[in-house]
Write a protein that binds this DNA or RNA. Sequence first.
DNA 1: GGATTATGAGATAACGATAATGTTTGTCCT
DNA 2: AGGACAAACATTATCGTTATCTCATAATCC
Lengths: 352, 352
Amino acid sequence: MAETSRGRRQPTLQDLAKVVGLTANTISRALNDRPGVSATTRALIKAEAERLGYVPNVHARSLVLGSRKTIGVIVSNISNPFFSDLVSEVELQAQHAGYTVLLLLSYESAERERDAIDRALRSGLDGLIAAPVQERSTAWTPVIKAGIPLVLVSRELPELGVDFYSTDNDAGIQLTTDAVLARGAKDVVLLDEDMPFSTIRLRTEGFRHSLERHGLTFDPRHNLALIPPARSFRVSQSWHADDAYRVAADLLDRGRRPDAFVVGDDYYALGLYRALRERNIRIPDDVMVMGWGNLPFTRFMEPPLSTLLLPFEEVAHRATRRLLDHIQGTADNQIVTERIVPQLAIRASTTR
Amino acid sequence: MAETSRGRRQPTLQDLAKVVGLTANTISRALNDRPGVSATTRALIKAEAERLGYVPNVHARSLVLGSRKTIGVIVSNISNPFFSDLVSEVELQAQHAGYTVLLLLSYESAERERDAIDRALRSGLDGLIAAPVQERSTAWTPVIKAGIPLVLVSRELPELGVDFYSTDNDAGIQLTTDAVLARGAKDVVLLDEDMPFSTIRLRTEGFRHSLERHGLTFDPRHNLALIPPARSFRVSQSWHADDAYRVAADLLDRGRRPDAFVVGDDYYALGLYRALRERNIRIPDDVMVMGWGNLPFTRFMEPPLSTLLLPFEEVAHRATRRLLDHIQGTADNQIVTERIVPQLAIRASTTR
DNA sequence: GGATTATGAGATAACGATAATGTTTGTCCT
DNA sequence: AGGACAAACATTATCGTTATCTCATAATCC
């Protein structure tokens, strides 16, 4: 009876101590390479630990050390390549530093975000990297009150007063817009989502600047094609393409014929391509198309889509580094705000 | 001095107890809605807890309860839409059950997988859902020895004797192959990766069966186009398209002209499309193309790609349900092996 | 060779919660 | 009125580590 249950229960420090004939304390010191144990004893203990398959109980350790060696990541959804890359990079780096990653998804919903934050707080995390769903949210103050280091990515919440890392949307849109303008476009339309995100507002502003810098005027009714926000959250990204298709088709059917499109998401370009194809409008001869995000399929579109290479690894890398600094107490107490400039990938869709 | 540090430290049960004038135990019972506390006292305690912003210390709770309310997910990489969907669904359901998800990535590397397992064991997880990197791996036995419930997905390890959930690769490939055969194809090529995975072996077998059932012979040299395995792991999925492009181009340039391609990954179809386009081979008139995975972009390919809708949500759902049953002790002690049959999405690439 | 340090290890006390018993008080019944 | 019994709370133990303090013994010094 006792024998059968023995296999189930993991050996503890006490068990090990009894076997070796020392105290749990000494075992702990030996295994964690702390001083106070002779080399021979240490070797003996380590060998015995290995033999018994001893694994320290994290719960006990966490309780004493007050840390679980875990950082949380809150993003809206990892089907979005931007976020999956971000999370991957965070995981990779956290792992190097001996941390594991707790994944919490908010699905672009304020309610779910609140829930995710709540679960994060109840999970005893050492720190949190998050891409907030909405601006001006008080949902995050409990995190700060609890003294848990927080680093934001992608979407800024200036009033929170925490570190922020992001791709430079303003520079990005100017890069893409300038690129088509430099190639002779005179009438550019920005196809983007109609959402109250700072990222999108920044893009619109940058777009406008770019036009004006080239001596063109910016008229929202003329240069903007806005995709109505989705009523409910849909997991598949391809709906973005459908939405973009509809908006683009509508615009073209109203007789509007710009000579270049700049979009806020590669998926929009996917839908746009279809709308153009259906109307026998050739890319890039009749109209140039510039994407955003360098999604894996863009190189294989026909023609290959010029797009913007977002430095998400870099963002994730720096954000994680900063978070770990906070956790380990090696961070200065400035509020860091970094926007990393993306790079253009020019392909056939803008080459005349 | 003492005042400044007060804000940092989270209030504990003891603190609350002192304030209310009761014992920590009573507070605990009150807050967890366990009997033994009068209604008025309970209300008082809850109010005070709210006022002080009391959050139970998970570390302590985990220690005493022996559970962290966390399940781990080990997949190779979440940039792959299959896995990101899987992970999303697991997260969604785990959340419903009050569990959080720890994400561990193995990047298709046996070494990293071993490391991930190690970290999982040291993280005090309640259970583990994993897509193993390779077959016949002893890496997983420590998990079983530690008595941590394990459910495998996607790739099977029969010798481990644990539950397994997957899409039905055999049924899937027969669905796709049958579909092109039913539409008049007489000379079909399977374009797939040359890797020693059970999934791929199953696909080849199913493909062969399908041909033979239609009175065709299966000749590896004739009906198989194999993509050499990547030497190093590459994050971006689009390399799969490049590899497929190269293999397909090579095949076509050797003068081979099948009347249908069936592929093992939608990305292969992306590369294949390009190879065909370059040689002015029309889809579907000259050759039909059948994909695998229903990735978001397939609907927007030109022509839209017929493909296979993998029931990953279903797989994730059942696997998670099963894992939670194990954790909560409500699972029977059979070894469950379920393969869920995918569905066809017929589009223009196979419509003559 | 005696006082002084290192050195290795034990004893004890956290960490913050929950579980298993105790103890008090009050209520009900006959 | 006296005993049974339950409600409401307190006491104490426990989970498995790590940290601090103490103490014995061996090594080192002049």
